[in-house]
Nucleic acid binder design. Structure first.
Lengths: 190, 190
DNA sequence: AATTACATCTAGCGATGCTAGATTGTCAAT
DNA sequence: ATTGACAATCTAGCATCGCTAGATGTAATT
């Protein structure tokens, strides 16, 4: 039965090519230019083939988002300097989060702005996203009684900073100042 | 020369009807169902007429956003309880901001998520948006040295809370807890 | 060899945003 | 009053989008 396995392998490969093409095109020309036709052309198949892999265009965006979730957690963990104080660790994570958002704007957009058909409220939250949340909680915990609530708030702050800066509502030049200010406040005991 | 004035008046009126229809349809069925054809039908004109008023569909979204900016500032100012302490004032503004976002999700989306073609970084920021920023700065100022940076951070936090809660990434039930936690931190002196 | 099942494509549907060109209506000048 | 110019408005259509039904070719099964 090596044949069906080969087919499965090929299918998985093709699926990855779709996701890769979508991500590349999005990062290059923005998500609006990621069309099903363009993707089909990129993987050298006709359009209906894409629908054998994904239910809709949104689902493709979702697959890219999922890839992003798989990367963000490790990036955050790796960002913490060795022998950093708890407050420094928090600052490292904050800066790393923002750099992630600005260096891969299309990926970040897929993860947090575009409709992807992914569900989060329930238990079907992808493990990689749970990990990301965990990475943030690790640096928030030392300073807060209710770590979960505090992490949600921390995350929201970072997301807001990323979004408002991305479309020019707050001044790019003051990114570091804002982070310093916030970390300073959040690491006060109360 | 009353004629041309009447025409101008009628044109302004029609423009307002377009904006109103867009806002209503968006709040009712989401922005994706606000199409130029639907709007034309709503105001009982053909589609090209809309392009005599707005350069593109995005510009219509922008006009709705602008209307929203005109409302958010006053809402925030009015939210501060009489004889509230500085910390309480900050909490009032935070809660009012979130309630604004959740009670008029489509309006908020137009203001802060959708592409609108509006510019913000420069001096052409609409006055109403400056006012909104001012309303937030007023409650942040007592607690921070660099009020501008602190306000940007505060605003970002609120925006992040609104966005993450809107698509189910953080728990709706803990909204108040998150706000309390944040206000508690931000109002510590440092 | 005939038939079934599967993989893939061609062609097209109903939308979308937007626009060129025809058509109507409204005034001013003769 | 008639005509002509100008502005307002509409009809009709383009290119593109996401998506899919039905045709076509290919491989596996009987």
């Amino acid at each position: 039965m090596g044949i069906s396995e080969r087919k499965e392998r090929e299918k998985a490969e093709r699926e990855q090519r779709i996701i890769g093409a979508a991500r590349m095109l999005a990062e290059q020309d923005g998500w609006s230019s990621v069309t099903v036709r363009r993707l089909a052309q990129e993987i050298e198949y006709s359009q209906p083939v894409l629908y054998a892999h994904f239910e809709s265009r949104d689902a493709i965006v979702g697959a890219v988002a999922l890839e992003g979730f798989g990367e963000l957690g490790p990036v955050l963990r790796a960002s913490v300097r060795r022998s950093a104080s708890p407050a420094e660790a928090m600052e490292d994570v904050a800066m790393a989060y923002l750099e992630f958002a600005f260096e891969r704007p299309a990926l970040y957009e897929a993860m947090f702005v575009l409709p992807t058909g992914l569900r989060f409220a329930k238990s079907d939250t992808p493990q990689s996203l749970r990990d990301t949340f965990g990475a943030m909680m690790a640096v928030v915990e030392p300073f807060c009684a209710n770590a979960e609530v505090a992490t949600e708030a921390f995350w929201a702050t970072l997301h807001g900073l990323a979004e408002l800066e991305r479309d020019g509502r707050i001044r790019e030049a003051f990114r570091k100042e804002r982070v310093i200010h916030i970390i300073n406040k959040l690491t006060q005991k109360s």
